[in-house]
Amino acid sequence: MNIATAKSISIIDLLAALSHEPVRINGDRYCYRSPIRNETEPSFCVSKKRNEWYDFGLGQGGDIINLGKRLFETNDVSAVLSRLDKLNLNKVVHPSEKVRVATAQSVVKMEKVHLQPLQYNPLMSYLRSRHIDIAVGMKYCKEIWYTHGKKRYFGIAFENIQNGVEIRNPYYKGCMGHKDISIIHAESIGVQSAVCLFEGFMDFLSFKTLEKQGDERVCVGELCDYIVLNSVANLQRCLQRLGAYEHVYCFLDNDKAGMDGCRMVSNTYPTKVIDMSDNYREYKDVNDCLIGREKYEWKRKET
């Protein structure tokens, strides 16, 4: 068995084979008492669609390989693959990336919404799992609590220019209210001559974390405003706004959508655009660069 095949195995099926049953099921989310530590209240969750797990008590998560290392008490990937192969579990077909994106960008009806300063430990743990500096997260984000379908949920909130809110937690990516771009102005008086452009706010937070660490891959050498698209679909509506700047630093993803987006901006402002994605060309995006996950790592391991 190789890594790609192992990742096609359902984590839910793996847990069932090891006699771990969910305490409750809320749509896509399966909640368990953690199989990798002792606890009385369920805080270990699995997303069936993404086939990923997250332990809120530990503030850690990942795919079936990461889980296998903990379940089988080994750091040897080959040993994990061997154990999974012996279990003879069925393989599952996961949604295409296009379907995942469509689901991720969903806008749901939320009630009893409450925004407050970011402080809830599970959300702090989630930021740490993405290697985001906590002080950076607290500065630019808030904490949101809301009710949906008579259940109470929470997430990290990032506001846009129409008072809508982008929401993230380990198993949800969506928006409350109108979806639009977010603008963060430089902490300096006056109009800035440069702007940095990001697809999502996790990339922006990753940029600010890397900048705080003095990482030369993201340094632009001048004071900047920041625009977060919150979806590449919003690029068209901010093109005119970008024209106000002398320099546009594009920190878009190293995938087709990101490259097409950078090309669109470059075609509109051919003398202004600086494509920064080459500085993290081995990674999918700025957050992957911060974490250190190489682009298409599993494909290289498979071959």
Score class of each variant (00 low, 15 high):
G149T: 07
K212M: 13
S82I: 06
D55H: 14
V92F: 06
K173C: 11
H247M: 10
D255V: 04
F198D: 00
Y172V: 08
R237S: 12
P22E: 00
D275E: 07
S47P: 08
S106W: 02
I227M: 12
D55V: 11
D13H: 10
V228Q: 01
C196N: 14
I11W: 06
I3F: 06
D255I: 04
C238M: 07
R29D: 10
K179P: 08
S47G: 07
M124W: 09
I12E: 03
D275C: 08
I36S: 03
G214Y: 01
F204W: 06
S125P: 09
V265Y: 05
D253P: 00
H247K: 15
K69H: 11
K208V: 03
T103D: 15
H185W: 07
P42H: 00
I189V: 13
M259P: 00
G61C: 05
W53N: 01
Q116D: 02
Y269T: 06
L14P: 11
D133G: 13
A79V: 13
R83L: 02
C219R: 14
E143Y: 13
V232Y: 14
S8L: 15
Q162V: 08
E143M: 06
S188A: 15
G190I: 10
N90E: 12
M176N: 12
N26K: 13
G261R: 10
A257P: 13
Y32E: 02
D13G: 08
V191G: 05
L127K: 05
I64V: 10
D28W: 07
K272S: 02
S19L: 11
Y30A: 00
G137S: 10
R293I: 14
M124L: 15
S106T: 11
K150M: 09
L118H: 04
I183L: 14
V232K: 05
D253V: 00
S10Q: 01
E73V: 14
A4F: 11
V99F: 12
E52A: 09
R241Y: 14
A17Q: 10
G164R: 02
P170M: 02
I134E: 15
L71Q: 03
D133C: 11
G59P: 11
Y245Q: 03
E166I: 07
S19D: 15
M259S: 11
I36W: 04
K109R: 14
W53F: 15
I291G: 02
I25K: 12
P122L: 04
I189Q: 13
S129R: 07
F56M: 05
C238P: 02
P42S: 01
R130G: 04
A102K: 13
D28S: 09
R241H: 10
D225C: 05
F56V: 00
N230F: 11
R128L: 13
C219P: 03
Y153Q: 00
K179V: 13
H185F: 13
C31W: 15
M110N: 07
R29M: 14
